[in-house]
């Protein structure tokens, strides 16, 4: 089994794995992971509450072969494509917990971010380690 060191938010070994890739392989028991001091780690040692919701969405998208990628440049967590082969992603995705509070300003800011990058806002609601719902949110002229 391949071995990696988890340091500074990435998994370093034969390759450098992103945080989500590394977590996924660790959870699938495809790799072993150690910290800088040689202590073996499991997924619970790495997953923070905030990271967990993003990882749950990552896993969901990956296991369903939905095309997605990093969304940071567009102001969100993931960019999600509607169809394989699309040049541009349709959605900018923000994972949230069901009981997470937000202000209207934060809500509008997310919408503005999506709109300014010509994407649609996608909220993935996480509850008890599962995706509860995906919500697509669009400004409506009435």
């Amino acid at each position: 089994m391949e071995e990696y060191i988890f340091a500074d938010g990435v998994f370093v070994g034969k390759d450098i794995l992103t945080i989500y890739e590394g977590l996924y392989l660790l959870e699938s028991r495809k790799i072993k992971v150690y910290d800088k001091y040689g202590k073996e780690l499991d997924i619970t040692d790495i997953l923070t509450e905030d990271l967990k919701k993003r990882y749950i969405v990552y896993k969901f998208l990956k296991e369903r072969n939905i095309i997605f990628g990093a969304g940071m440049k567009f102001g969100g967590t993931f960019r999600v494509y509607e169809n394989p082969g699309d040049d541009h992603s349709k959605w900018i995705c923000f994972p949230v917990y069901k009981n997470e509070k937000f202000t209207i300003y934060e809500f509008l800011a997310k919408n503005r971010v999506a709109h300014s990058t010509r994407k649609t806002l996608l909220i993935s609601i996480v509850d008890k380690d599962k995706i509860r719902k995906f919500l697509e949110i669009k400004w409506k002229k009435l």
Binding site: R64, F107, N111, F134, E136, I137, W139, L142
Partner: peptide, 22 residues
């Protein structure tokens, strides 16, 4: 579902919320 957001000038913007299934 439509969220109707009222600003301090009483102008209202609307956002449609749709459930998406993958």
């Amino acid at each position: 579902l439509l969220l109707a957001l009222i600003d301090i000038e009483l102008d209202i913007v609307f956002y449609e919320v749709l459930e998406l299934r993958f």
